[in-house]
Design a protein around this nucleic acid. Structure first.
Length: 245
RNA sequence: GUUCGACCUCCA
């Protein structure tokens, strides 16, 4: 079954969904029987191609056959609707999921939070964070990163740095994405000096900036005509591991 | 042990 699931994934990557579906039917006949992973793999493939209706259809097929949609299945679909900006449908799926007795986990919550944040509805994202905490589901770095990014995007840098503090207070270690989100937020409101401080902070904390982090700063410096400073940053990159790309 | 879901910039 692992082998077949790997094949299914390959077919999906090549967008050969018809072959993937045929293979599943063939598996139903001759075994090994497709399992939840088989279905989830194809559903995820459809979602990546934005074929949400096909994805839903396959979930119903899954339901009608042997494997009930599980937490991962719901997560894939909820994520897809969030990415499409359709939070109404995403929340409707979330409710359906709960009706079926499946409890959201940190991934599902984070996906929903991201959906709201991408629409600028950070308040709703924060409400979900509170809901998680009430239910003793621990938010992880990705959850906080998502909210920090959302706050930055609506220009609430103070909110973002508060969230950053809260995250650390709760024992969640900021990662490169966290710092990079802050650097991006600070640059976008012209606080380049503070962004550079964050850059230094992350180096202190042993979270090596990536080429993306440097790009954000370089982009900002160049936009402001500070090309000389940009070259200094390039020097810093070379001094550390990073190869400018 | 090996297969499915969530996080960063620009460009295309």
């Amino acid at each position: 079954i692992y082998n077949f699931n790997i094949l299914l994934k390959g077919l999906c990557k090549n967008r050969e969904f018809h072959k993937a579906i045929s293979l599943v039917r063939e598996m139903r006949r001759n075994g090994p029987l497709p399992d939840a992973v088989s279905y989830n793999t194809i559903i995820s493939g459809f979602c990546k191609e934005k074929e949400l209706e096909k994805a839903l259809e396959l979930m119903y097929e899954m339901e009608a056959n042997h494997s009930l949609p599980g937490l991962v299945t719901w997560g894939i679909l909820i994520d897809a609707f969030c990415r499409a900006g359709n939070m109404e449908e995403a929340m409707a799926l979330y409710e359906d999921m709960k009706c079926k007795g499946i409890e959201a986990d940190v991934v599902v919550y984070t996906v929903l939070i991201r959906g709201f944040c991408d629409r600028g509805e950070v308040v709703k994202g924060k409400a979900l964070l509170d809901e998680m905490l009430q239910r003793s589901i621990s938010p992880n770095a990705i959850t906080y990163n998502t909210l920090i990014r959302g706050l930055c995007k609506i220009g609430q840098l103070k909110g973002a740095s508060e969230m950053f503090k809260i995250m650390m207070e709760r024992g969640v270690r900021p990662n490169v994405y966290t710092y990079t989100a802050l650097v991006d937020g600070l640059c976008s409101v012209d606080k380049t000096k503070e962004a550079l401080q964050i850059l230094n902070l992350m180096i202190e904390k042993d979270e090596e900036p990536t080429v993306v982090t440097y790009n954000i700063i370089l982009n900002k410096l160049c936009k402001d005509g500070l090309v000389g400073d940009a070259f200094k940053v390039i020097e810093l990159m070379k001094k550390r591991d990073s190869r400018p790309d």
